[in-house]
Design a protein around this nucleic acid. Structure first.
Lengths: 150, 150
DNA sequence: TAAGATTGATAAATCAATCTTA
DNA sequence: TAAGATTGATTTATCAATCTTA
């Protein structure tokens, strides 16, 4: 009898998932240029939410990029009127970044495109999708930058 | 009775998959800097395989980036001795990019890290992983740039 | 004429200081 | 001292021509 290791199983599953992600790569790039956003701009928009604010440092660690990069990305978004810098009420070192109404709108629109399930998923039967949903629900829950988007 | 649309189901599934994908983002960035590869370098390495060659244009369309960008990325990799440019046998306009033995080795090593399933997947029971594997196997098969990696 | 690739100019991201406040 | 953020210099990536071959 063939004995498939748990590691082997996980590897097969991960391959399938990666192929779905990579298939959508060109489309995601198109969406960004449609909205006139650089990958960096997008990262900042996503990491912010309409109800929570983030500091420059938090934005940098969220995306594993340099703090100076965040300064630059927020500058661009601020000039476009999509975000604003505020000074932290108690710690004057911290700059807090908040979405403007226009920024919240852009964020909703671009995320709606990103969060739309890829066409391949619709190829599955309804019952298959239910199985996937129920099984994936048992994964440890990880916070995402788009948890607030409905 | 609540009626969940197929679209709603797919959206839930996609959210779960995205959260897994985004959780691994910082780690993937770390791997790249460990190997001294820019995201562009990585894209070229992945898109090549040990048995197939790709033209500059094919590399550009695979990753939805500009052809001039590919010129630049291949330059860097060629200086590091990881790839070589060859002239196409019949069409002298085309430059074919091939992996050197060192490039093939680097590609295997970095892909081994990228293709390693994230720790969260191992949190699932063996039976859950089997269900995922079998269900995902019914997705339409899409070629990935790493199909050749075992 | 058009496709493939490169070059040169611009924009964006990263790295190494610097400045401010805790 | 150290954390948070910014500035300036360097590296990468993108955009607009240019060059070569089909």
């Amino acid at each position: 009898v063939t004995r498939v290791t748990k590691r082997g199983l996980a590897a097969e599953v991960w391959r399938s998932l990666l192929s779905v992600f990579y298939a959508g790569f060109p489309e995601r790039e198109r969406v960004l240029s449609e909205f006139g956003l650089t990958p960096g701009d997008f990262k900042v928009l996503v990491a912010l939410s309409e109800h929570e604010t983030r500091s420059m440092r938090e934005l940098a660690t969220t995306w594993a990029c340099d703090a100076s990069n965040v300064t630059w990305m927020v500058d661009r978004l601020e000039h476009r009127g999509l975000v604003e810098r505020r000074t932290h009420p108690t710690d004057r070192r911290i700059k807090t970044v908040v979405l403007t109404p226009a920024g919240a709108k852009t964020r909703r629109e671009v995320l709606a495109r990103f969060l739309a399930p890829p066409a391949d998923l619709f190829e599955l039967e309804r019952s298959d999708l239910e199985v996937l949903r129920d099984t994936l629900a048992r994964l440890p829950h990880r916070a995402t930058p788009f948890d607030d988007v409905t």
